[in-house]
Simulated assay, not measured.
Amino acid sequence: MEKLLTLFQDATQAGLRDIATALDRFSQGVADEIARAKPRAIAAAEDDEAFPLDVALFDSAPTVAVPKHAQFAPLLDVGHRFLMTAEGVFVEVRRPWLHVIQQLAKHSETGPRPPYGVVTPKIELAFGRLGVALPFVQAFAEEAQSALPNEHAAWMVWDKEKQALTYKPLHVSSTSPDEIKFDRPVLEPHESLAIDLHSHGAAPAYFSPKDDKDDAGEVKISAVLGGLGDGGTPSVAFRLCVLGMVIPLKVPVSAVFKVPEPA
């Protein structure tokens, strides 16, 4: 009886292993079939040995058609994609604190146009309005005054768990009246850079070529404070940086500094 029981158990285990192997093969086959069926508008032969590289690029930043009849479904995951519309090419970017849709290029007035729909440009902040950040900017302005004659820097980080902005001081490795260097902090998975602050000391607030280089390719609000110190004329400059595109943001000086009223 024991021998029969052992044979039965061995046969059962072998059968279970065969079933498991078959299920694995079936699952992999389904996954492969879905991957092959996924539309990718790439003008290349799929048997080209370099085709997988283009597939990876396409998947990281796809181009999609905006529907003319159905409802437009916005990007939900963190990342970006390009939108082909009847009016032109748009870029859509999603970050935990930001959803932005902006036009990159217009179609020719006389040339052919894709038979697609249209999309409305938008800039949507998870924290509502930029005014929510102004108390932190005001606190930074006081720190920047104390750092004179040198430049100063700090970050404002969006905490997805708390659904709030937090102020993050930076470790400055070197600073002078013309330049500042700091270590980029390592953020937690639920944190993301939202506002990058730095000062120009007594010099006016503006975005220098170095600022342009530092901001290229990033998604953040960049802010500069200037005209600090006794006798200076305070000034501010704000812009939204979107992967090389910059969108000026209007922030009055009086929202950051207490500007004395004329006598």
Score class of each variant (00 low, 15 high):
residue 1 M to A: 09
residue 3 K to N: 14
residue 3 K to P: 12
residue 4 L to R: 15
residue 4 L to F: 04
residue 6 T to H: 13
residue 11 A to D: 13
residue 19 I to P: 10
residue 19 I to L: 15
residue 20 A to N: 11
residue 23 L to G: 14
residue 24 D to I: 00
residue 28 Q to H: 09
residue 35 A to K: 08
residue 36 R to K: 03
residue 37 A to T: 01
residue 37 A to G: 07
residue 37 A to Y: 05
residue 38 K to I: 13
residue 45 A to S: 11
residue 47 D to H: 15
residue 48 D to W: 03
residue 51 F to S: 04
residue 53 L to I: 12
residue 54 D to Y: 13
residue 56 A to Q: 13
residue 58 F to P: 10
residue 59 D to E: 10
residue 60 S to F: 03
residue 64 V to I: 04
residue 67 P to L: 15
residue 68 K to I: 00
residue 78 V to P: 14
residue 82 F to R: 02
residue 82 F to P: 08
residue 83 L to Q: 15
residue 84 M to A: 14
residue 87 E to A: 15
residue 89 V to E: 11
residue 93 V to F: 08
residue 94 R to E: 03
residue 98 L to W: 02
residue 101 I to V: 06
residue 104 L to Q: 06
residue 106 K to Y: 08
residue 107 H to N: 10
residue 107 H to P: 08
residue 109 E to F: 05
residue 112 P to A: 11
residue 118 V to D: 01
residue 122 K to T: 01
residue 122 K to R: 05
residue 123 I to Q: 06
residue 127 F to R: 09
residue 132 V to C: 03
residue 137 V to S: 00
residue 147 A to E: 00
residue 149 P to T: 07
residue 149 P to K: 02
residue 152 H to L: 09
residue 155 W to T: 12
residue 155 W to G: 09
residue 157 V to S: 07
residue 162 K to N: 11
residue 165 L to Y: 02
residue 166 T to E: 10
residue 167 Y to P: 02
residue 168 K to M: 13
residue 172 V to R: 07
residue 173 S to E: 03
residue 177 P to F: 04
residue 178 D to S: 07
residue 180 I to H: 00
residue 181 K to L: 14
residue 184 R to F: 12
residue 185 P to Q: 13
residue 186 V to G: 13
residue 188 E to T: 13
residue 190 H to F: 02
residue 191 E to V: 10
residue 191 E to C: 11
residue 193 L to S: 07
residue 194 A to I: 05
residue 194 A to P: 02
residue 196 D to Q: 05
residue 197 L to V: 08
residue 198 H to Q: 04
residue 199 S to L: 01
residue 212 D to H: 08
residue 212 D to C: 09
residue 214 D to F: 09
residue 214 D to A: 05
residue 216 A to F: 14
residue 217 G to I: 14
residue 220 K to G: 01
residue 223 A to W: 00
residue 227 G to A: 12
residue 228 L to E: 12
residue 229 G to Y: 04
residue 230 D to Y: 07
residue 230 D to M: 15
residue 231 G to D: 06
residue 232 G to P: 05
residue 233 T to N: 09
residue 240 L to Q: 07
residue 242 V to T: 06
residue 244 G to F: 07
residue 247 I to R: 08
residue 248 P to D: 01
residue 251 V to L: 11
residue 251 V to Y: 09
residue 252 P to I: 05
